[in-house]
């Protein structure tokens, strides 16, 4: 497993992250700094804990399931979350710019994944039609 960095922010190395679930976080908030949200869990549920959280991991069960875009954007826009947002699961390089624009920093990729598509895709569009969290 390796990370592709979309935003060029400082990121937490893949081997260090050990995210807990939302339920675990609620039960044992002490010392947790990384949390994994399921697609049907809302960003708002993290509000009481965000001061201590530096990594939120969002999940794509399949690339067509776009709920993580709304979760990421909500974390940035509504919760003013400044830490790292990472996505796992089935994502395509074709989604790179959308992810970045919704505030996602990193993508978890298989070790053998060729990152050149991701690089190319990030540079593809110089023109966009909406304002967003990041350009």
């Amino acid at each position: 497993m390796k990370l592709f960095n979309l935003s060029q922010q400082h990121i937490i190395p893949a081997e260090e992250a050990d995210p807990v679930s939302l339920a675990e976080l609620k039960e044992h908030p002490e010392a947790a700094y990384a949390v994994a949200l399921e697609p049907d869990e809302s960003a708002e549920a993290l509000r009481p804990f965000l001061a201590q959280i530096t990594l939120v991991v969002l999940h794509f069960p399949i690339f067509r399931d776009g709920r993580a875009f709304t979760q990421a954007r909500s974390l940035r826009e509504y919760e003013d979350y400044k830490g790292e947002i990472r996505v796992t699961g089935h994502v395509l390089p074709d989604q790179a710019a959308f992810l970045r624009r919704c505030g996602v920093d990193t993508v978890v990729l298989p070790d053998d994944d060729d990152q050149t598509e991701w690089e190319a895709q990030l540079k593809r569009f110089t023109i966009t039609y909406q304002q967003s969290i990041a350009s």
Partner: peptide
């Protein structure tokens, strides 16, 4: 039309 074109959040509804 412009607002909805490749909208980053709403392309995988």
């Amino acid at each position: 039309r412009q607002w909805s074109t490749l909208h980053p959040e709403f392309t995988f509804l």
